[in-house]
Design a protein around this nucleic acid. Sequence first.
RNA 1: GCCCACAUAGCUCAGUGGCAGAGCACUUCCUUGGUAAGGAAGAGGUCUUGGGUUCAAAUCCCAAUGUGGGCUCCA
Length: 667
Amino acid sequence: MPVDPAGTARHSGRTRAPGDDAGRRPVGPREACLSSSHVDDHATVLRRRPMPQQTHDEPADEALDLLAPERGSAEELLDARAHADGDGSLDPMRHSAAHIMAEAVMDLFPGTKLGIGPAIRDGFYYDFDLPRPLTQEDLPAIEERMRASIAADHPFVRREWDPDEGRAFLADQGQTYKVEILDDLRTAAQLSGTPEPVVSTYQQGPFIDLCRGPHVASTGKVGPFQLLSFSGAYWRGREDRPMLQRIYGTAWNTQEELDLYLWRREEARKRDHRRLGTQLDLFSFHDISPGSVFWHPKGQRLWRSLEGAMRELQDRRGYQEVSTPILVSERLWRQSGHWDHYAENMFVVESENQLFSLKPMNCPESTVIYRSHLRSYRDLPLRLAEYGRLHRNERSGTLSGLTRVRQFIQDDAHIYVRPDQLTAELEALLGEIREAYSWFGLVPRFAFATRPDKALGDPALWDRAESIIKDVLDRHGGDYAIKPKDGTFYAPKIDIYIDDALGREWQMATIQVDLVMLPERFDLTYIDESGQPARPMAIHRAIYGSLERFIGILIEHFGGAFPFWCAPVQAVVVPIADRHLEAAEELASLLRGRGLRVDVDESSNRMQNKIRVAQEQKVPYMLVLGDREVEARTAAPRTRAGEQQPAEAWEALADRLATEAADRRPE
RNA sequence: GCCCACAUAGCUCAGUGGCAGAGCACUUCCUUGGUAAGGAAGAGGUCUUGGGUUCAAAUCCCAAUGUGGGCUCCA
């Protein structure tokens, strides 16, 4: 059933171990299974930056920067990350910065009520209930007031309160949110039978805030900081609670670290897939279909190479590809449970008094094919792959580029297995994932999510499946994290994460071992060796996940400089003069005949300009043809890294490039 | 969905109430070249849409649509 095997599952966005459960979302029928889950997307924090003004005096720098073979700068970004705060040691300082920001805001906006103000990755935030909406001009004023507090070097003074006195104090200050926090803490303590919590405040200068601590010794210990942005944020993240205003800031030990961080943000902004998608002419978005991608010819080429590679892998691994309808009767969705639990995310269509929905997932229809025959134990494993076009009615405010769309295609598959085949199938799957990711130089990390409290099905079945998964992961080699109780209510699962070139963690695929949903709800059976009907297990898996999202991640990972094998344009033939055009076309056809994606620059521009354009488009090879080359039937390759290679005979070049493409190496 | 911001030429953006702008791209002409921008001319916009204020609106106000930053990293 209705699983989101990788699908549009959102990346966690935080560079933390997958096992870190701080960002864990509640597990339940809606969240884990049916919903595409509205997980926050913190990675975009990296690129929250207003567009700089582009003046006509300085396009050169920016342009040249973009043209660089960006994987070099990706390495630098990784280095930059190595210097960043990875262990949370900056947290007290950043949390102190949040307090200083709150002090400044209270000073500038009397009557402000405070929400919470934690340290976060790379910085801090604080939520405020303010008398008026913030404007862009407020941030510098707040910063200035913060600097004054830092210059004054007020000590942070901790005070512990009797709980009732503390509460009275906060109530007296009108800090209703703080009172709520305190009350909740006390209630929780009572319920769990633990002692009353210690109520502590920290004071710096005139400002007192309920806080557990710790803090740095004094305001002067706060390092270089900058306020970054502000936005709305529901109190406690709940839509039925007031909308507060959140200000984000960043703080570091040294000016160099702050500068490095700001530079990283800027680099991330340059790699933003939406920006590169336009620059490289890969895709566009239009308000006639919000949340759905218009793939341009080059984007579609990229798409087809990824899809082709996966099809080749799947063919080799014994998958069979199917294709099922997009428009499907409500009857199927009622049986699958979508109609009850997922309706708000489905696009419903009425025709001749019947209701249909655009499919949000492929799984229910996969079972229709499974059930089209009486299946024998000899038929299993049955691996049904489908590149189905899915629609999910995501809330308008959550749409974002390629990473959060309403229409997408997954490299989806449902594998029906006998219980005794589970081990071998999972092993094969882990291998497939490693192989596919190696095409991009990505190294998958696995996390094992186990049975949640509200699990369906026979606990013994769960135990067996979990022990099989654990065993497979143990033998597979390499570390994996365990996320206790983070499985879906019908399936334990393996989540796959990668780190991209900017050090951002993304959740990619999910392998779910469906014990009960598809098999039970659709009453799937096979006839076992003794002639009796038996229940198969269904593995839901996607390796890329949503192709849209995967391509978005690839664009940012490679900064648009895709590996040769999947680059939309693998080579541009650059004739030096018009008289070389004919030979250029001839060479291009030769290469195209070998399955390579090759363009000819037929413009009347000078060769330098043609090379510049090809560089801008991050084309792996430029093949220069002048008098010498035409005469000798050779071409002089230049790589996008700027390397000029010796002229090479056409046939030899075609052989070399075709081999290189077939190798699917990540560079 | 909610909060805030933004929406001007294909792209990136200037333009704060009085004739619609720039660079790149595009078209044409000149240039026929050796590894990151040769030169000139031209064309191109109902300033997202709908209302309103005003003698006058790209500009101010309201709304819609779209886009962007966010919306439990828990005192």
